[in-house]
Design a protein around this nucleic acid. Sequence first.
DNA 1: GCGATCTTGTACTGATCGGTATAGTTGTGG
DNA 2: CCACAACTATACCGATCAGTACAAGATCGC
Lengths: 205, 205
Amino acid sequence: MRTGRPREFDLDRTLDRAVRVFWRQGYEGTAIADLTEALGINRPSLYAAFGNKESLFRRVLARYVEQRAAYLDLALAEPTARATVEHLLLGAADATTCRGEPRGCLTVQGALATGPDSDPVRRALTSWRRSGEAAIRARLARARDDGELPPHTDPAVLARYVCALIYGMSVQAAGGATRTQLHRVVELSMAGWDALVGGEQPAAG
Amino acid sequence: MRTGRPREFDLDRTLDRAVRVFWRQGYEGTAIADLTEALGINRPSLYAAFGNKESLFRRVLARYVEQRAAYLDLALAEPTARATVEHLLLGAADATTCRGEPRGCLTVQGALATGPDSDPVRRALTSWRRSGEAAIRARLARARDDGELPPHTDPAVLARYVCALIYGMSVQAAGGATRTQLHRVVELSMAGWDALVGGEQPAAG
DNA sequence: GCGATCTTGTACTGATCGGTATAGTTGTGG
DNA sequence: CCACAACTATACCGATCAGTACAAGATCGC
């Protein structure tokens, strides 16, 4: 049995609040004082529960990815490449424009350009984005191998194109773009997909 | 005639160095000590020449836009909407992947998510991006009115789509994407444009 | 109740933040 | 040669930074 004085705050609930602070202000723009105030706990409690600022941010990132970027895995599980891409774009548009939550994407705006001290955090975000791109590329490669996409398509280029749209919409969301506006961008992108890849059905023979 | 001891450093040359520091580290990630070291001047000289950190950043932004984002005006002056869009995308791909210079775009990564203290700077960048989008939208609206684009096209959506690609490529460049990789994305995007808008020629009827 | 163990709040650390006072230096105009 | 103006360099300001020492408070096993 765990002895000692019990913690007076809920770990997950507190972590969720920390997610929003880092999401809104970025890693370097967030001071420990901002966190203790938003979390309603004292400094030593924060350090005891989450370690230093960087390790807290990494836990925040993990929770953000698990909750807010869950659409990624769902999208990859879609039966077709087209559905995957549409799910990705719509998921990004929605996740970056949630009412009552910060605009944009933590993995983009959390630490895009930083001073040397924050380099490890910046690299962690970059690494996460790259792994996401790799997963999308693998999914598109499978679609091509299955004959769903034309054999001449380059999954790497396609994945980078899709991710560029996702990151770009995230930047626009951070700048105040509405969900409706981003949905229009997604519609346009999917129309382009259909025009380029050849409609909603694979080649009929 | 200007009397007094002459300045020992070149203003423009020093400003160019400041551009690179803010470009690489972002607004909040840049300390005055970083600047004085990179610029080779003392703290009071910096303040006398450029004012405080925020006003220096605004001058840096103006110079960056004038030099590194010059492709924007050139693109808008292209004779066709297609040439404009291609110029924009290629210009962004090139400007964010210059050898020997920071990767990405200052107007995106300079202050995408910040603490409250840096809010004015963040808003200034957002405002600049929005004005760029508006200019592109106006150019595309003109193309539609001239009959170059189908009458049902929505210039606002199209402009947001193009800007999303630009910002997205900028994020990817900041994450280490190469110029060649981004050029492939541009090629794909332009193929989509042609497939969607209907080829390189306006309707012949 | 007692000691062990953990969390709490307060108060503090050295370092760094943006910004400046001040004195010394180097030039120009008369 | 002198008075003045602008720049340079050092050294400093209060505030804030991330991180912690320490003592009081709370809960467990015994």
